[in-house]
Computed example of a mutant assay.
Amino acid sequence: MAIARAMASEFRFNSGRVSLDLAATIRRRASKPVDVMAPAGASGRWLKAAGLFSDVPALSRSEEVRLAELREAIWQLVTGAMHGKLPDRAVSIVNRAAKYPLGMPQLDSSTGTVSVVSDDPLATAISIIARDAIDLVTGPLKMRVKTCDQPDCRMLFVDTSPSGQRRWCSMQRCGSRAKVHAFKRKQAGAAHTH
C-alpha cells in the first residue's frame, strides 16, 4: 500500500489524458525543468502507475530513450497544435509509435477477468500513448487543451470544467501557489499604503 502511494505521488496524472500525463513527467518546463523519469526504474514505475502495465516493467536504456523521445514529441505536437502548426518531426515520431498494433483482450473463463496479450507490451503501451496524442490534437478536445497559468509550471492539461475557464493544472498545486502569491502581493501593497 505504501509503495502504491509512493508511486502515485512520484508522478502526476491530472492532465486529463495519458499522453499529456507522459509530457508532464518533465516538471517546471518553463523554469528549472526536472525529469521525474530520470531516476533508475522511474520509466517502468510511470508505465505501471499510468495503468499500462500490471507490474513494473524493467526497461532497457534504449526503451527508456524511446519513451522519452515520445514524451518530447508529444509536447511539441500538442503545443504546436495549440498554435496551429504540427511540427513534422514530432508528427513522424508520434505516427511511428502509433503504428504498433494494440494488445488483444483475452477473457479468463475461471476468473472472469480480462488480460491484454501483446507480443511487445512496451510497443503496445507506447502505441496507446501515441494514439491518445493523435486523438487529442485532432478530436473535439483539441480546443480545450491549455497550459497551466503558473509561470514556472506550464503543464499541459485538458480543461473539462463546464465553463472552460480552468487556469491551473491543479488547484491543489499551482492554483494554491498562485493564490498565496497574490495574497502576499496584496498584503505587501496594503503595507506600503499605510
Rank of each mutant, 00 (worst) to 15 (best):
A38P: 01
P151S: 15
M171F: 03
K99H: 04
A38M: 04
F157Y: 15
A2P: 03
D55C: 04
A23G: 00
D55F: 02
R173H: 12
A2Y: 10
A190N: 14
L22T: 02
V137F: 10
N95T: 07
R166F: 07
Q106C: 01
E64C: 14
I93L: 07
L86D: 05
L67C: 10
A30N: 07
S109H: 09
T111A: 01
K85G: 08
S54E: 09
E63V: 02
R17Q: 06
I128Q: 09
I3S: 10
L22E: 00
I26A: 01
S54C: 01
G16Q: 05
P140A: 13
M7V: 03
I26C: 01
R5W: 03
E64S: 14
L107K: 08
D135G: 13
G44D: 09
V94S: 09
I134C: 02
R173E: 12
A123S: 15
P87E: 04
N14H: 10
F11E: 07
G51N: 15
G16Y: 12
K142P: 02
F13Y: 13
S118K: 11
T124Q: 10
S163Y: 02
K179D: 08
L156H: 05
R173M: 07
R45Q: 14
K184H: 15
D135M: 08
A73Y: 01
S176W: 04
D21P: 00
K48T: 04
S60I: 05
F53Q: 00
Q172K: 15
D108R: 05
Q106W: 02
F11V: 04
V34H: 06
M37C: 04
L70V: 05
G80A: 09
T138C: 13
D120M: 11
A188F: 09
C174A: 12
R27D: 09
I129A: 03
E63C: 03
A30I: 04
P87T: 03
V94D: 02
R71K: 01
